[in-house]
């Protein structure tokens, strides 16, 4: 299986440093306080935010900040091979914690003490990069819910196959067994809020892959910013708050 042709094209026709097509929509659910769908190529993730509201389990309450509850779930029809995963399998639980950790650094939890914010992520289509797509969807959902955020965190993954650093791996490339690095950063301060890598990698290759992933994040951040700005402006214009 050749992942990068001699001409430098990947399986889906992309160049090594090329991101997949991005798309997003905001305020897609009626009951949730905020929601968003984020799509990277064929990976499509829905995020819903409820809160901030009272803490359900009193002994989990924190006097000085909000607690964030995060749940990651994959729809049975989301993967190429149908698998009834449920929400409590190991991978889903691990990803719930990873996403929660990234969000805890992004949400200004100290502004909402003694409350709880629920973030639910539902993968509708999985084709590689689900954890970073999940973070992007969650950040947009939090922004649409009006939860105070330090910055619009953006995530992207990169890997290394056949001597090439590849940006935004799809499922086939991800399953090839090469190293896979997922990151999320705050674009205004360039600080990483998520860094996960599996597999052994020599330091200079790692640096190359990390830099590529960071570039990817900045591109994703700029896309998210543009869409959120459009959405906010459209709403403001519709209710007469600003003129065109």
């Amino acid at each position: 299986m050749e992942y990068v042709t001699p001409e430098g094209l990947r399986i889906d026709g992309r160049r090594p440093k090329e991101l997949r097509r991005l798309d997003c929509s905001l305020d897609v659910l009626q009951s949730a306080d905020g929601s968003a769908v984020f799509q990277m190529g064929n990976t499509k993730v829905l995020a819903a935010v409820f809160g901030p509201h009272e803490v359900e389990v009193r002994n989990q309450m924190k006097e000085d900040k909000a607690i964030i509850k995060c749940e990651y779930a994959m729809a049975a029809f989301s993967t190429g091979e149908r698998r009834k995963r449920g929400k409590s399998d190991r991978r889903s639980q691990e990803l719930s914690l990873v996403i929660k950790a990234a969000l805890e650094q992004t949400v200004m939890v100290e502004l909402l003490p003694r409350t709880q914010i629920d973030v639910y992520v539902q993968v509708l289509q999985a084709d590689g990069g689900t954890r970073v797509a999940a973070i992007n969807a969650a950040v947009l959902a939090l922004a649409s819910a009006g939860v105070p955020l330090r910055d619009l965190a953006a995530g992207c993954a990169a890997g290394y196959l056949e001597g090439h650093s590849l940006l935004d791996l799809n499922f086939q490339e991800d399953s090839a067994g090469g190293p896979d690095c997922s990151i999320a950063l705050h674009p205004n301060s360039d600080r990483l809020v998520l860094l996960q890598m599996d597999s052994r990698l020599p330091m200079d290759t790692f640096e190359a892959v990390l830099n590529l992933a960071q570039d990817g994040c900045r591109a994703v951040a700029s896309f998210m910013r543009q869409r959120l700005l459009e959405h906010t402006r459209k709403l403001a214009m519709a209710r007469g708050a600003v003129r065109a």
Partner: peptide
């Protein structure tokens, strides 16, 4: 800004606030 919305200022410039659109009330 920590939320999305439109920034407003009063005439004398001594008060600055953000008007957003959300379902939850602060």
């Amino acid at each position: 800004a920590v939320k999305s919305g439109v920034a407003h200022q009063n005439k004398s410039g001594s008060l600055l606030w953000l008007e957003g659109r959300q379902k939850r009330y602060i």
